[in-house]
Design a protein around this nucleic acid. Structure first.
Length: 573
DNA sequence: GCCGTTTTCGGCCCGACTGTTTTCAGTCG
């Protein structure tokens, strides 16, 4: 069984939730939540670290006890401590606490009063009208609960791309290790780098197809084999994700890869172009009558209908075929183009590492500059800085700059946008900074009119350079707030404000469509990790994925610039 | 349960908002 980081994260979250409902020591609970976060955001594979005898206790928030528990999860796939906790209540409180408005106390109240142990129990009780009679609940709580349960049912279960990546890595190396396997590729929405992935489509080219299929269904992570023939097989992994495997011959490799990468809309449009030319395209190749004329590579297939290779990220039939025909495909930005990271936190507020450690980690990633951008005081939970504390922090950055040759640390802040659109720090201190990022962290529910006006007012502030995570959404947790994005983009152009693609895996905000709209509106974009630790810097890759899906080129992205050009861009007109 | 030290245990994340109340507990970021 291959345990991935997301598994460990899920176990620790469940433990924390159960302890929380049981009213355990809040700091103990926090220790589990911190550990879940640390592991979940780690760019390295923990199981891998263990097999290399690396010390887990060197990870922040992991002591000897949790290190032991992690080892147990990796070795057995379970945690005895969690099993015992679950046995005591026979309940899965974690899914209940995912409902907005339900925290540990309310879940406990529902459990005590109505014996509610899971979402099913909750839905039935809400429909019966029992909920509103429990102390602390009312009509509004019941309505919210029912609405949220309804929303959840409609949403098909998809996993975030970074979690899919954790499953893909070991699966691909498992397949590649089999004798006779020549090539393995994961196609589908994973290859198109969509922010969430529904299932995995794996294409394999090999000798001994039937043996390879048997080998595939014998993968240690397979929970259920749905079908298994000589050229294709479908399984469900322990993590509840379906994997479809296809064995294809070398002459069809490109055609199969194209077909299984999709999107469906892109494929339909491609086949239509072929039909107009008297050709037929399917997963086996490009055919004129019965004769295969192409199919070995994707480029060969596109070339057969006189098109250049189209990058997977933009295969959505949103104009890419027309662009290809007119030789106007974008030259998409890549991770190698990124020269710095303009949004991160340190120990000073809610980050894990020092300025120096972040700077050194950035050097090892080949960056020329970073900006340290702590929260302002309104974000109390993160120890947001007031003007005096920020002034001291600026001095600290100066000291680090004095001591390091290979990188420049810009002085920045992530200042809160207050409800009226004013900023959470005085102008004097903002004026001393290289980068001012403004961001909404509360009052997400304002009307579109008010929210839009609030954000635009902040962008118009003479010190503001960047608007962080513009819609405030958290993928599958919080809907984007209501704003008029077209207005915001227009205003961004007018006041030379840069819009952020926040690359944190739970945000990815702006999304792909907004990126595209930004490019069309002439808005500059910055891709930022919003790292809270040195490992968090690696989220940059997810932001680059998103930018590529949004057709962005190097020239659209501010942090592909060398430092002198970046400084010019940050100067307000 | 972690961390950092004072090496053995005390400190660790706080203020605003919501829905329920009728003065506040619980949730959220």
């Amino acid at each position: 069984m291959h345990v991935v980081n997301a598994d460990i994260e899920a176990v620790f979250t469940k433990v924390a939730d159960l302890l929380d409902v049981a009213g355990a020591n809040p700091f103990r609970i926090r220790a589990y939540r911190n550990a879940a976060l640390t592991i979940g955001r780690l760019s390295r594979d923990v199981a891998d670290m263990i097999s290399r005898n690396e010390h887990l206790t060197e990870l922040p928030g992991i002591g000897s006890d949790l290190a032991g528990k992690i080892r147990e999860i990796v070795e057995t796939g379970r945690l005895g401590f969690l099993d015992r906790l679950e046995k005591q209540s026979h309940a899965s409180f974690s899914e209940l606490m995912e409902i907005p408005g339900l925290g540990p106390r309310k879940v406990k109240a529902l459990y005590d009063a109505l014996d509610i142990r899971n979402l099913d129990d909750l839905e039935k009780a809400a429909e019966r009208g029992d909920i509103e009679h429990v102390a602390g609940f009312g009509r509004k709580s019941r309505d919210n609960i029912l609405k949220e349960i309804g929303r959840r049912k409609e949403r098909r279960k998809r996993i975030p791309w970074p979690v899919a990546m954790q499953l893909v890595r070991p699966l691909v190396s498992y397949l590649e290790a089999f004798d006779g396997v020549r090539r393995v590729a994961v196609a589908g929405s994973f290859r198109r780098c969509r922010e969430t992935v529904g299932d995995l489509d794996v294409v394999v080219n090999c000798r001994r197809g039937p043996d390879t299929i048997r080998y595939f269904t014998g993968y240690e992570d397979v929970a259920d084999v749905l079908s298994s023939g000589t050229t294709r097989s479908s399984v469900v992994l322990r993590s509840d994700i379906q994997v479809d495997l296809r064995v294809v011959p070398s002459v069809s490799w490109g055609a199969a890869l194209l077909y299984f990468t999709g999107s469906r809309e892109h494929n339909i449009a491609v086949r239509k172009i072929a039909m107009d030319r008297g050709l037929k395209i399917n997963e086996y190749g490009v055919f004129r009558d019965q004769k295969r004329i192409a199919g070995k590579s994707e480029s060969e297939v596109y070339s057969a209908i006189d098109l250049p290779f189209i990058p997977p990220e933009i295969r959505e039939n949103r104009g890419e075929l027309e662009a290809a025909k007119n030789h106007a495909l974008p030259d998409l930005v890549g991770l190698d183009d990124i020269r710095g990271d303009l949004h991160m936190h340190t120990r000073k507020t809610d980050g894990r590492n020092s300025i120096r450690e972040m700077a050194e980690a950035a050097v090892s990633r080949g960056y020329e500059y970073i900006a340290v951008t702590e929260h302002s005081r309104h974000v109390a939970i993160a120890h947001g800085l007031d003007a005096a504390a920020l002034a001291r922090h600026i001095e600290e950055i100066d000291r680090v700059n004095g001591a390091m040759q290979d990188i420049t640390v810009l002085k920045g802040v992530e200042v809160d946008i207050l409800e009226d659109g004013s900023l959470d720090l005085p102008d004097e201190i903002l004026g001393e900074l290289d980068v001012v990022i403004c961001a909404v962290h509360y009052q997400f529910g304002l009307s579109s009119r008010k929210q839009t006006r609030r954000i635009i007012r902040a962008m118009e502030h003479p010190c503001t350079n960047i608007l962080a995570h513009p819609t405030g959404r958290l993928i599958s947790r919080r809907e984007p707030c209501e704003v008029d994005m077209a207005e915001i983009m227009k205003s961004a152009v007018d006041c030379a404000c840069i819009l952020e693609i926040n690359a944190a895996p739970e945000r990815l905000d702006l999304d792909d469509r907004h990126c595209r709209a930004a490019r069309q509106a002439g808005v500059k974009v910055v891709i930022s990790s919003d790292a809270h630790s040195v490992d968090g810097l690696d989220s940059m890759a997810y932001g680059v994925n998103q930018a590529r899906r949004g057709w962005l080129e190097k020239g659209d992205v501010a942090n592909t610039l060398a430092l002198p050009s970046l400084f010019r861009l940050l100067e307000k007109p």
